[in-house]
């Protein structure tokens, strides 16, 4: 197990290096003057230009610049935002809990509905429930989520008035210090009446929207994994022993069917962390996805560079964790190849 862990860790090093290289090249490819692109100032005097060029190390040879950049990242220096003049890492860390909270809620929504739905569909294979569910799953899988979000806002918020339209907190009624950055926890800590319920209400629609595609994927996957497992000999043995179908499905089959499903859930958390871009934009959710899009609009290239580096790093770490966990559950993986 330890060797497997070391091997997987070692494999991420070249990925990180290449990621640094790509983000390093990226900011260099931005058309126009590099000093202007990075400082966001126009019409700089030649002397000031030379001064800034030296200050940013752009007069150094390229390999030295890359070494400086990589060294900075290793020490936690991801650059400084042009607009807010604060370190990119700080900005990222303030916004990240919002994205994480949304991602976790979306994944909970998707798993808690998707897994049981898939199990039922497999148990009643070919029946009306199975067919309906697979139809719904196909719709979810094909859904342009930005449109889905707008439709939900239109129906749930504007017509029925059930949920708020955007944001995380109703700032007119509530204000609390971000202690953990998670609205659900902070609202409880604040002790204000109704604050927690307010945070929940704000989370409902974004979680549904972000969780729709994973829900469809999980339901389809659980169903097919379940169908496969139900054909196994040990399931027949369990049935022959006289166990009820409910017990066979719920205990014997489900446990084995869940292994691939859990892996796919884990891998999707990584994608969702970043895929939250669209959902956050629609709901004005103050997370890293919305920040990234706004950075493009503001031509804040250092923020973009650092932000992409950080998001990709998060995804790589999550995927690594899933891999390790999978190796823990399934010995065939860690001993194979």
């Amino acid at each position: 197990m330890f060797r497997f862990l070391l091997k997987r860790l070692a494999l991420t090093i070249p990925t990180f290096l290449a990621l640094m290289f790509i983000t390093f090249v990226m900011i260099r490819l931005v058309p126009g003057d590099p000093v202007e692109a990075r400082r966001g100032e126009r019409g700089i005097s030649p002397e000031r230009h030379a001064e800034l060029l030296h200050e940013m190390g752009l007069d150094q040879p390229v390999w030295k610049q890359f070494a400086d950049y990589a060294g900075g990242i290793l020490q936690g220096d991801f650059g400084t935002s042009i607009i807010s003049k604060t370190p990119v890492l700080n900005e990222f860390l303030t916004l990240f809990p919002a994205t994480l909270e949304l991602t976790i809620c979306a994944m909970l929504f998707a798993s808690l509905i998707g897994i049981p739905a898939g199990v039922f569909a497999a148990a009643r294979r070919g029946g009306i429930y199975d067919q309906t569910l697979m139809g719904v799953a196909l719709t979810g899988y094909s859904m342009p989520i930005f449109w889905w979000g707008l439709i939900l806002i239109l129906v749930m918020s504007n017509t029925l008035g059930l949920t708020p339209v955007s944001g995380r907190v109703d700032l007119i009624k509530f204000y609390y210090q971000p202690v953990t950055g998670f609205a659900l926890i902070d609202s409880l800590l604040s002790g204000q009446k109704g604050a927690f319920w307010d945070a929940v209400r704000h989370l409902i629609l974004p979680s549904i929207v972000l969780g729709t595609v994973p829900l469809a994927v999980i339901a389809r996957m659980t169903r097919s994994a379940m169908l496969e497992v139900l054909e196994e000999d040990y399931v027949r043995t369990a049935r022959a022993k006289g166990l009820s179908m409910r017990r066979v499905i719920g205990v014997h089959a489900l446990r084995n069917a869940l292994i691939p499903v859990i892996t796919s859930i884990g891998l999707q958390v990584g994608t969702l962390l970043a895929g939250a871009v669209l959902t956050e934009t629609i709901f004005s959710w103050p997370g890293v996805g919305k920040w990234l899009i706004e950075s493009i609009g503001r031509r804040d290239y250092p923020a973009l560079q650092g932000g992409i580096m950080l998001i990709a790093a998060c995804v790589i770490v999550v995927n690594l964790a899933v891999d390790l966990l999978y190796g823990l559950i399934n010995p065939r993986i860690r001993h194979g190849k």
């Binding site: 070249p14 990925t15 290449a18 990621l19 790509i22 990226m26 490819l29 931005v30 058309p31 990584g270 994608t271 962390l273 970043a274 895929g275 871009v277 669209l278 990234l292 899009i293 493009i296 290239y301 973009l304 992409i308 998001i311 990709a312 995804v315 790589i316 995927n319």
Partner: peptide, 24 residues
Amino acid sequence: IRVMDLIMAIPSLVLAILIIAIIG
């Protein structure tokens, strides 16, 4: 294979955004 792994390590929409941010 390494290059492909790297592309897959960056989430699709973020990678697309990165590319668009550079080439417009």
